[in-house]
Simulated assay, not measured.
Amino acid sequence: MKTPLIVAKSNKVIESSYRLTLNEQRLVLACIAQIKKGRVVSVEDRFEVSAAEFATVFDMTVDQAYRELQEVAERLYARSITIQNPDPKDPRITHLKTRWISSIAYLPKHGALILRFAKDILPFISLLEGSFKPYLLEAVAGMSSIYGIRFYELMMQWESKGEREIALVDLKRMLELEGKYAAIKDFKVYVLEPAMRDINEHSDLEASYTQRKAGRVVTHLIFKFKPKAGKRDKKSVVKITKAEIERQARPGESYEQVEARLRASIQ
C-alpha cells in the first residue's frame, strides 16, 4: 500500500447500523483505501491485503498481523450492515441489509488475503460524488477501541462546522447497541469515553462533548471538534472530483498524473 492512504465512505455507510470488531474495521478500511478516486468497483475486483502491509499500518508484528487477518476474515464474511433509505430513486426501500464481503481467498505462502466486496455495498464505497468525507487512514490506525473509528467518522462528516449533535437513540442504532447500556454512566464508561480517548490521543482531531437532557434523562450528545494544529496533510484529504480532473487535464496526462499535479498546487 502506498502512503498516504485515504478512506472514503458514503455518508449513508457512516450512519448505517453495523457492529465490527476493531480489526474487522481495519481490514475493511485497508481495502477501501485501495480504491482510487473516480474508479468504479465491480464484484470482480479483488483487494489484496498482506500481513506485512497490515502490520506496518496498524503497528503490530507480521506474525500477529497474519493471525489477526485469518481470524478477522472468517468473522467478517458473516457480518452484515443495514443502510437506511439506501436508494433515493426508490423511496419504498427503507432499509438495505447486505454483507460487507462476498468472498475471501487465502494466500498462505504470501501471508496475504484477497477480498471481494459484496455487490450491494459497492455503490457506497466507489465512484462517490458529494455525500462523503475522505480522511487519512493513519488518523485512525492507532485507535484501540471498537468505537473510536465510528465516532471519528461521525465527526468528520461535520468537520466544517466543528460541532454535531446526535440523539442517543440514533447513536445506539448506528452502533447496534439498542437495548444495551440503559444507564448513561455505563454507556460513557464502555463506549463513549474509550472512543473520545482514541480520537484525542491518536487522530488528527481534538474533541470534547456535552450532553442534553429531557428532564433527568440524557437524550442527546453534543460533540465539538477541530483539527489538531500541524497534524493533518491538507493535500491528502482535499476532495478533487473526477469532473475537475477531466477539466484540468493536459494533453497526454493520465488521471493519476492530473490528480497529483492538482494536489501539488494546493497551498
Score class of each variant (00 low, 15 high):
Met1Ser: 10
Lys2Phe: 07
Lys2Glu: 10
Leu5Asp: 04
Ala8Arg: 15
Lys9Thr: 09
Val13Tyr: 01
Ser17Asp: 09
Leu22Val: 08
Leu22Pro: 04
Glu24Cys: 07
Gln25Asn: 15
Leu27Phe: 12
Val28Glu: 05
Ile32Pro: 00
Gln34Phe: 01
Lys37Glu: 15
Val41Trp: 02
Val41Asp: 00
Ser42Val: 07
Val43Gln: 09
Phe47Met: 07
Glu53Gly: 07
Phe54Gly: 03
Phe54His: 11
Phe54Ile: 05
Ala55Leu: 05
Asp59His: 14
Asp59Lys: 13
Thr61Pro: 03
Val62Tyr: 01
Val62Arg: 10
Gln64Lys: 15
Ala65Ser: 07
Gln70Lys: 13
Leu76Met: 01
Leu76Pro: 00
Ala78Asp: 14
Ile83Leu: 06
Gln84Trp: 08
Gln84Cys: 01
Gln84Met: 11
Asn85Tyr: 14
Pro86Asn: 07
Lys89Phe: 12
Asp90Met: 07
Arg92Ala: 15
Ile93Thr: 14
Lys97Trp: 02
Trp100Ile: 06
Ser102His: 02
Ile104Cys: 08
Pro108Gln: 05
Pro108Val: 06
Pro108Trp: 11
Gly111Cys: 14
Ala112Lys: 14
Ala112Leu: 10
Leu113Pro: 05
Leu113Phe: 11
Ala118Phe: 07
Ala118Val: 08
Leu122Val: 12
Pro123Ser: 03
Leu128Glu: 01
Leu128Met: 05
Phe132Ser: 06
Lys133Gly: 00
Lys133Arg: 14
Val140Cys: 07
Ala141Asn: 08
Met143His: 09
Ile149Gln: 13
Ile149Leu: 09
Arg150Ser: 12
Met155Gly: 02
Met156Tyr: 14
Gln157Thr: 11
Trp158Arg: 14
Glu159Ser: 10
Gly162Ile: 10
Glu163Asn: 08
Ala167Asn: 06
Leu168Tyr: 11
Val169Pro: 00
Leu175Cys: 08
Glu178Cys: 00
Tyr181Pro: 07
Tyr181Ser: 01
Ala182Tyr: 05
Asp186Glu: 13
Tyr190Val: 01
Val191Trp: 00
Glu193Ile: 11
Arg197Trp: 04
Leu205Tyr: 10
Glu206Gln: 14
Glu206Trp: 08
Thr210Pro: 00
Arg212Lys: 15
Ala214His: 09
Arg216Gln: 12
Leu221Gln: 04
Ile222Gly: 01
Phe223Lys: 12
Phe225Lys: 02
Phe225Glu: 04
Pro227Thr: 06
Ala229Ser: 05
Ala229Phe: 09
Ala229His: 08
Lys231Asn: 02
Arg232Asn: 09
Lys234Thr: 06
Lys235His: 07
Lys235Met: 03
Ser236Lys: 03
Val238Ala: 04
Val238Tyr: 00
Ile240Ser: 05
Lys242Pro: 00
Ala243Asn: 06
Glu244Met: 11
Arg247Ala: 13
Gln248Cys: 07
Arg250Ile: 04
Pro251Asn: 01
Gly252Phe: 08
Glu253Gly: 06
Glu253Phe: 07
Ser254His: 02
Tyr255Glu: 12
Gln257Tyr: 04
Val258His: 03
Glu259Phe: 11
Ala260Trp: 04
Leu262Gln: 08
Ile266Asn: 03
